[in-house]
Nucleic acid binder design. Structure first.
Lengths: 215, 215
DNA sequence: ACCTGAACACCGTTCAAGT
DNA sequence: ACCTGAACACCGTTCAAGT
């Protein structure tokens, strides 16, 4: 079981989500395709478990994070750690932190986030929404990362800067009276840093939360 | 082309993302499988275009939204309209508002959101991040919706309440000293409304934005 | 309890050929 | 410009049979 998940993660790291097939995995394990079905009911569960396997070290990193006396600061640190995990493993984006019945590390991460909200003056309902919101920011940014041409970039066909530049140029070519906003932010989009974008979104949510908690 | 997308959307509406195959689509169009490749380069593009096709009416709905004198209120209205679109078409979640080169309606929706930020006292960079953050909240919530057992629910195997209840019960069975947060919010999770969860997350972001704009 | 080979019922994509 | 049939190279999943 352990080695099945380890090889699955290795395969995903090396060549992305499309590379994880039962046949490729079986070959790496030196066995038959059907063997994998003894450990896992179907491909969805395989991906859920592989994603959670990759989250083990992340939960560890979060545990080692220094705890400050501002719970909002701690929420920020945890969220940034989660974001880093996705940057390093883009294939996580689709199976990231869903299905807490199977993903035990994910449940642990919810708990870590939630414990910070316990230090804030909020109702249980507000705490539930707060953690959902923060995870939502991470997942939303992950989806944004996944939308960039990661595969083409791995293949060396396109580099990210050229890709962003091409889109920004399309935007600049639009009628500025019909698209005043897109026009205004074309320069911002061109060469933007995903991490900055994530941090900005996270900051808005954390500010809202701080205000709600009166902290 | 128009009818290809219309039938693709119909197929997606009737039976979900897994049902959209080139063979099923060709059969509905009364033609051969390969014909579709004249309109579309591959399946990814088909899904991108189908999603954008479904976004046409949404852009229209947004256009008809009454404009208030508070841009934050208008951002909220637009975001809620986007959320509604995903609730009605869960298959949108994976291809929702990505790839503005192909999805022209998506670009229009970015523009609508962005125009509201033009009414706020923000830098271009802040405006870019603000719209990303709002779209992120919608996409993050969409991912959350998609994680629930939609297919099983369509098949009538599981109903949502029973599903949530089962998870909440798992949470209540955990050691409350190791999982104080998960324990605290089990009741909130049980039977929670996705729309409430979305609105709460959106509100945190909008509050943060209002503060940033000094409005 | 764990693994296998071989088959089944699908996929997306291509291509030479048609009108 | 638009469409086709037929093939290619894959998939996930099942199952009877093995140890």
């Amino acid at each position: 079981m352990e080695s099945v998940l380890a090889e699955a993660v290795a395969l995903l790291d090396e060549a992305g989500a499309a590379a994880l097939t039962f046949r490729a995995l079986a070959q790496r394990l030196g066995g038959g395709v059907a063997s994998i079905y003894w450990y896992v009911a179907n491909k969805d569960e395989l991906l859920d478990r592989a994603a959670d396997h990759a989250m083990g070290p992340v939960l560890n990193d979060v545990d080692k994070l220094p705890r400050s006396d501002d719970p909002i600061d701690d929420l920020r640190s945890i969220a940034l750690t989660l974001f880093d995990a996705i940057v390093q493993r883009p294939w996580l984006s689709s199976y990231f932190m869903r299905n807490t019945s199977i993903q035990t590390h994910t449940l642990g991460l919810y708990e870590k986030l939630g414990q910070q909200t316990l230090r804030l003056d909020l109702t249980p309902s507000q705490r539930f929404y707060a953690v959902s919101a923060i995870v939502g920011v991470v997942v939303g940014s992950a989806a944004d990362l996944g939308q960039e041409p990661t595969q083409d970039m791995l293949d060396g066909n396109v580099d990210r800067d050229a890709y962003l530049h091409r889109i920004a140029q399309d935007w600049r070519d639009l009628d500025p009276r019909e698209f005043p906003f897109v026009h205004e932010i074309a320069d911002e989009f061109d060469g933007h840093d995903d991490a900055d974008q994530f941090r900005a979104a996270l900051e808005l949510t954390l500010t809202g939360l701080r205000l709600q908690a009166g902290a």
